[in-house]
Amino acid sequence: MKTTGGSDAAKRRAGERAAERAEDGFVVGLGTGSTTAYAIDALGRAIDDGLEIRGIPTSFQSRQTALEASVPLTTLEEVDGVDLAIDGADQVADDSTADAYGALIKGGGGAHTREKLVDAAADEFVVVADPSKLAPTLERSVPVEVIPDAYSVVSERVRELGGDPTLRAAECKDGPVVTDNGNLLLDCAFGSIDDPEGVASTLARVPGVLEHGLFVDLADITYVGTDDGVETREY
């Protein structure tokens, strides 16, 4: 399993704690990333012990992880609703005194469009993270998925908004990263994001933008795995 940032033990603790929230008959959204992969593996073990659930993967990666864990899969179109979504984050706003408490930046894996669809549809959205993902204020670059013909126009609009867009380049092929939806990714640096709701709303109105990686007022709980346990944030 490929992991990035944080300790594997901390990620595993967070993922396994989130998996414990699944109950018989649940439809569970399966997010993307190394921490969520631990949750999917834990769900697979629970299924071996008799738990009956169905999972909705949010990317090719999470689908493959779920298949390896023998998690039965379905789609949003085939169910009446999603009971629980488990997903990671690239950064979590962790200042409990701020209005943005619990806001997220996602999309480091390029799957934030499908993740947002599933996470927003869930009755409960649980974030899994390690301490390296916590910050008082969101400040990482915001991934923005754009249709290919629009990336230069969207880039110019982002600059007008005070951002610095960079077309995400592939590491193992020439050219840009292409998402599961066949689109391109702009990583847009805005510096410290004191008003994620405002930035999210503005980006959503830019023609050519399919979806952005700011998740505002969506998370219900964050489980933060540490070296000796799991901390809980409720929003």
Results as ranks from 00 to 15, higher is better:
186 L>M: 10
9 A>W: 08
173 K>V: 09
80 D>F: 04
217 D>E: 15
15 G>H: 01
41 D>F: 15
40 I>R: 01
7 S>G: 11
98 A>R: 10
78 E>W: 13
130 D>H: 00
67 L>S: 13
32 T>I: 02
37 A>M: 05
56 I>L: 04
75 T>K: 03
93 A>S: 04
172 C>V: 12
213 G>L: 05
161 L>F: 14
191 G>H: 12
122 A>K: 00
22 A>T: 04
190 F>K: 02
22 A>H: 09
219 A>N: 12
57 P>S: 08
71 V>G: 06
235 Y>W: 15
100 A>W: 09
23 E>K: 05
46 A>M: 09
156 E>C: 12
147 I>S: 11
165 P>W: 15
144 V>Q: 03
76 L>H: 10
19 A>P: 15
184 L>E: 10
41 D>I: 10
23 E>W: 02
31 G>P: 00
29 G>M: 07
3 T>C: 08
7 S>Q: 07
105 I>Q: 07
173 K>S: 10
187 D>W: 11
209 V>E: 11
155 S>N: 00
34 S>M: 06
94 D>T: 15
43 L>S: 00
173 K>L: 10
114 R>G: 06
82 V>Q: 07
93 A>T: 06
151 Y>M: 04
127 V>M: 06
154 V>P: 14
98 A>N: 14
10 A>T: 02
161 L>K: 05
222 T>E: 11
77 E>N: 11
88 G>H: 02
223 Y>K: 01
150 A>P: 11
119 D>E: 13
65 T>C: 02
232 T>E: 11
182 G>A: 01
75 T>G: 08
193 I>M: 05
56 I>V: 05
65 T>P: 00
122 A>F: 08
21 R>F: 13
161 L>D: 11
204 A>L: 11
93 A>W: 06
104 L>S: 09
194 D>K: 02
131 P>L: 06
18 A>I: 03
4 T>L: 14
50 G>R: 01
193 I>P: 09
147 I>P: 14
27 V>A: 01
61 Q>L: 08
155 S>W: 00
106 K>E: 06
129 A>L: 00
99 D>F: 15
63 R>P: 03
53 I>A: 04
96 S>L: 14
106 K>I: 02
52 E>L: 01
17 R>Y: 13
169 A>S: 14
72 P>F: 01
99 D>Y: 15
38 Y>R: 00
232 T>D: 03
157 R>L: 03
51 L>Q: 01
142 V>S: 08
